[in-house]
Write a protein that binds this DNA or RNA. Structure first.
Lengths: 245, 245
DNA sequence: CGCGAAGTTGAGAGAGGTCAACTCCGGTGG
DNA sequence: CCACCGGAGTTGACCTCTCTCAACTTCGCG
């Protein structure tokens, strides 16, 4: 038993999220009738790579990670999944990555792909919402690449905390249900450096810890040196002129 | 005038690609009637960030980059776009990134968003294809994160070459229309290190250059040390057990 | 012929990976 | 109740790799 289990992403109640799946400001009620709920233990696989893509998934409560194991034994986490997030979309009838629960008792809603597609064929508005959701996922994924591309370790960890804060219902009191190892594999750095960076930020007074898995952001501006973390700031590059590097 | 202008991604002829847009194995003919074609000069902006998202786009011939300029002056390229690639999808009626032509005379097809959406409402099959395309884009984007997360410079550049080879019509003779600076901003490393890595791979006999922008891959296996570059190899991580790292 | 942009190569310095030791905490069994 | 154990997390010391700055080459173009 872990202390943060009771408070994972508290804003979304189960009933609410099942009967009215929410992404962005849009509410999809049409799919709710098809949903099946599954409870997952800490670390339990939700689906594996190369599994047939029979379902689309949504986190109802708890948290999960989407990850890949590389041939050299390293693990990479390509996304963290929180309540309301849809995932497991795949063409070609098989998944590219695997997904696992992070929190004990994570509740996952399963939507049979075939059924939803039939529903979509009769309901263009639902189709549009799913499309927009996928478009947003692309944008979000590409925005996350900006985080990975950041130079220093403190910048990466800072940008990570800001991303988690933006996805968290409570603005400055951020719950990090994942382990330091998960964070390291997400940011493509070593656990030691993640730990050092967090300690560094703490000593600078930029953040504090209520406990290991609960961070409070004290100085939001200091977290993104240069203001690159938020994804609003993407400017076009003019002919590569500005390139001094 | 540059020597590679005439041979950019030669397999897709203009007429063919306009009348029958191709993604994956799927052909979308319904959208073709709405397309408008625009020719872009080298470096010319196709659309800027924060521009209203009026169109969806597709490269007919040539190449483009999707990029962001960070607050500290650095540039990040989040995607390279080649013939057949759709891009510029955005919700919230504004783009998150900017897009610019890389090759002189790059031809871009513009699809009015409103018109296509109306078309989709009447044609579920078209909607499904667009959805699948977006799903693929997510998978591809997340797979690219694996490249960014690789440790050494030679691994990154090797994985980049493999990615380009897979997206290229000609398997081992890969055309790289973008500059070394573009590659550097795509892989989040310095131009010098990109250049050094390429030279290194050349001296090892892994690759050769027909000219600066045309690479031939001699030893495909040596390019992905450990075999992590291809995205088929994504295994699930079991409870984090394998994690020694 | 000279200029500037793109690309390559060299030398140094700083940052993060690696290995190791240590603490902290919960769980288990005596 | 306490000793023991193992995993997660933190901190330290060392070393390697990449960034940075710089010089130089190559190439296309005026």
């Amino acid at each position: 038993m872990h202390q943060w289990e009771g408070l994972v992403m508290p804003s979304v109640s189960l009933q609410q999220s099942i009967s009215a799946p929410v992404f962005g400001a849009v509410t999809v009620t049409a799919m709710a009738s098809l949903a099946r709920i599954r409870s997952c233990r800490r670390g339990q696989r939700i689906y594996g790579p190369d599994d047939p893509a029979i379902y689309w998934y949504r986190i109802a409560s708890g948290a999960a990670r989407k990850c890949a194991l590389l041939a050299d034994g390293r693990r990479r986490i390509v996304d963290f999944l929180f309540p309301g997030d849809f995932f497991g979309f795949a063409t070609r009838h098989r998944h590219a990555f695997g997904a696992e629960a992070i929190a004990e008792g994570t509740l996952v809603a399963l939507y049979p792909r075939e059924g939803v597609e039939m529903l979509v064929d009769r309901d263009p508005e639902l189709g549009r919402q799913i499309r927009d959701m996928a478009f947003d996922a692309v944008t979000r994924s590409q925005a996350r690449m900006l985080i990975l591309g950041r130079v220093t370790a403190r910048e990466k960890v800072g940008a990570f905390l800001i991303e988690m804060a933006e996805r968290s219902p409570t603005a400055n009191a951020v719950v990090l249900p994942m382990s330091r190892y998960d964070i390291a594999d997400y940011l493509a750095m070593s656990v030691e450096t993640v730990s050092r960076s967090l300690s560094d930020l703490k000593h600078r007074g930029t953040i504090t810890f209520a406990d290991i898995h609960r961070v409070r952001i004290l100085d939001h501006d200091a977290l993104d040196d240069g203001g690159n973390a938020r994804m609003g700031n993407c400017l076009v590059c003019e002919q590569g002129k500005l390139r001094k590097n």
